[in-house]
Simulated assay, not measured.
Amino acid sequence: MTDTVDTTAADRALKGRHRAMWGLGDYPAVARDVIPELGRVLVAAAGVRRGERVLDVAAGSGNAAVPAALTGADVVASDLTPELFDAGRAFAAREGVPVTWEEGDAEALPYGDASFDVVLSCVGVMFAPHHQQAADELVRVCRPGGRIGLLSWTPQGFVGEMFRTMKPYAPTPPPGAQPPPLWGDEQHVRGLLGDRVTDVVARRQTVTSPEYASPEAWRDWWKTVYGPTIAIYRGIADDPARTAALDHDLAALAARYDRGTGSTVMDWEYLLLTARRA
Score class of each variant (00 low, 15 high):
residue 2 T to M: 08
residue 2 T to Q: 03
residue 5 V to M: 01
residue 7 T to M: 10
residue 11 D to F: 02
residue 11 D to E: 14
residue 14 L to C: 04
residue 18 H to S: 13
residue 19 R to L: 02
residue 35 I to K: 00
residue 36 P to D: 06
residue 38 L to G: 06
residue 38 L to N: 06
residue 42 L to S: 00
residue 44 A to M: 01
residue 48 V to M: 00
residue 56 D to R: 03
residue 56 D to I: 00
residue 58 A to V: 07
residue 58 A to T: 08
residue 65 A to Y: 01
residue 66 V to Q: 06
residue 69 A to K: 04
residue 75 V to Y: 10
residue 80 L to V: 03
residue 81 T to R: 08
residue 90 A to H: 09
residue 94 R to K: 13
residue 96 G to I: 05
residue 98 P to M: 03
residue 105 D to P: 07
residue 108 A to G: 10
residue 109 L to C: 04
residue 112 G to F: 05
residue 115 S to H: 12
residue 115 S to Y: 07
residue 120 L to Q: 09
residue 122 C to A: 13
residue 127 F to L: 11
residue 129 P to E: 03
residue 130 H to T: 09
residue 132 Q to G: 15
residue 133 Q to F: 06
residue 144 P to E: 03
residue 145 G to V: 05
residue 149 G to C: 03
residue 152 S to A: 15
residue 157 G to Q: 01
residue 158 F to G: 05
residue 160 G to V: 14
residue 160 G to Y: 08
residue 160 G to D: 10
residue 160 G to A: 08
residue 164 R to L: 07
residue 165 T to H: 11
residue 166 M to Y: 09
residue 166 M to V: 15
residue 175 P to L: 04
residue 178 Q to R: 08
residue 178 Q to F: 02
residue 182 L to P: 08
residue 182 L to Y: 13
residue 185 D to C: 07
residue 187 Q to E: 14
residue 191 G to L: 06
residue 196 R to T: 10
residue 196 R to D: 13
residue 197 V to E: 01
residue 203 R to Q: 11
residue 206 T to Y: 06
residue 207 V to G: 04
residue 207 V to T: 10
residue 208 T to A: 13
residue 212 Y to K: 00
residue 215 P to S: 01
residue 216 E to K: 14
residue 216 E to Y: 02
residue 226 Y to W: 14
residue 227 G to A: 08
residue 227 G to T: 06
residue 230 I to M: 15
residue 230 I to E: 10
residue 233 Y to R: 15
residue 234 R to C: 03
residue 269 E to Q: 12
residue 273 L to E: 07
residue 274 T to E: 04
residue 278 A to C: 06
